[in-house]
Computed example of a mutant assay.
Amino acid sequence: MKRVAIDLHYLPSLEFFAALADAEEILIFPKDLYQRQSYLNRTRIRLANKVETLSIPIQGRRPKIPMDQVRIDYNQKWQSVHLRGIKSAYGKAPFFEYYFPYFEEIFESGEENLWNLNRKFLTICLKLLRRTARLTAVDSSLLSEDVFDIRGQIEPGRPFSERNYYLPSPYTQLFGLDFEPNLSILDLLFCTGPEADKILGESTKKQ
């Protein structure tokens, strides 16, 4: 059984899901420390004229605390900004009306904890991709040697081409003539619907 250890990103990128292509169990770590300037609280979507980064504000400054203790800052109206951005980016996409309610429900749940929010989003993404991998929260100290550990590898500061997980397989996007690779999984789901996991399979580098 292939078991993959990975950071719990916010509405993860296509590279994230390509790296999990044949995983039967996905291990996530509530006690790993929150990292600034990471994908733990940010994702990328494509608007009409640019690629936009959506970031979830968190409480406190530079908190070196476990992920499951990171609190979301609701003094900033981030949900409205994110929902408006997603609707603007994908409202006319072929599968938007079918998939969007799943995500809207999570946005509107008022989840106070970043870890729980990301876990809810990942769970629904795996369901919509029709993947059967088990999602398991574990402690780093209990990690066995048979686990494929890619934590800390997928990060904004390094292009995906430096890693060995994702090789873009272009699909029809809503805006622009040039294909923009490695956006949030939202882009692929809203634009391709049931074909999303097949395209991810074609985008997975053969190890």
Rank of each mutant, 00 (worst) to 15 (best):
Y10V: 10
L11Q: 12
P12N: 11
S13N: 15
F16C: 10
L20N: 14
A21Y: 14
D22N: 15
I28A: 07
F29T: 09
P30G: 13
L33R: 15
Q35S: 11
Q37V: 05
S38T: 10
S38F: 03
S38E: 11
N41P: 06
R44A: 05
R46I: 07
A48R: 14
A48E: 15
K50Y: 08
V51D: 10
V51I: 10
E52L: 11
E52F: 10
E52A: 08
I58R: 08
Q59H: 07
G60N: 10
R61S: 14
R62L: 10
P63C: 09
D68V: 07
Q76C: 14
Q79K: 15
Q79E: 15
S80N: 15
Y98E: 06
Y98G: 00
Y99H: 06
F100K: 04
F100L: 07
P101R: 01
Y102S: 03
F103P: 00
E104L: 12
F107K: 04
E111W: 09
E112Y: 06
N113C: 11
N116V: 08
L117M: 15
L117D: 08
N118Q: 07
K120L: 11
F121T: 08
I124N: 09
L129H: 13
R131S: 09
R134L: 08
D139Y: 08
S140W: 01
S140P: 00
S141P: 00
S144H: 01
V147K: 00
V147T: 01
D149C: 00
I150G: 00
Q153V: 00
P156M: 03
P156N: 03
P159A: 05
E162F: 11
Y165I: 00
P168K: 08
S169C: 13
P170H: 12
P170I: 05
Y171N: 10
L174G: 05
L174F: 12
F175I: 01
G176Y: 10
G176H: 12
L177W: 09
L177T: 10
F179V: 07
F179T: 07
P181F: 06
P181Y: 04
L186G: 02
L188I: 07
F190E: 09
F190C: 04
G193C: 01
K198A: 02
S203H: 01
K205I: 08
K205L: 06
Q207F: 05
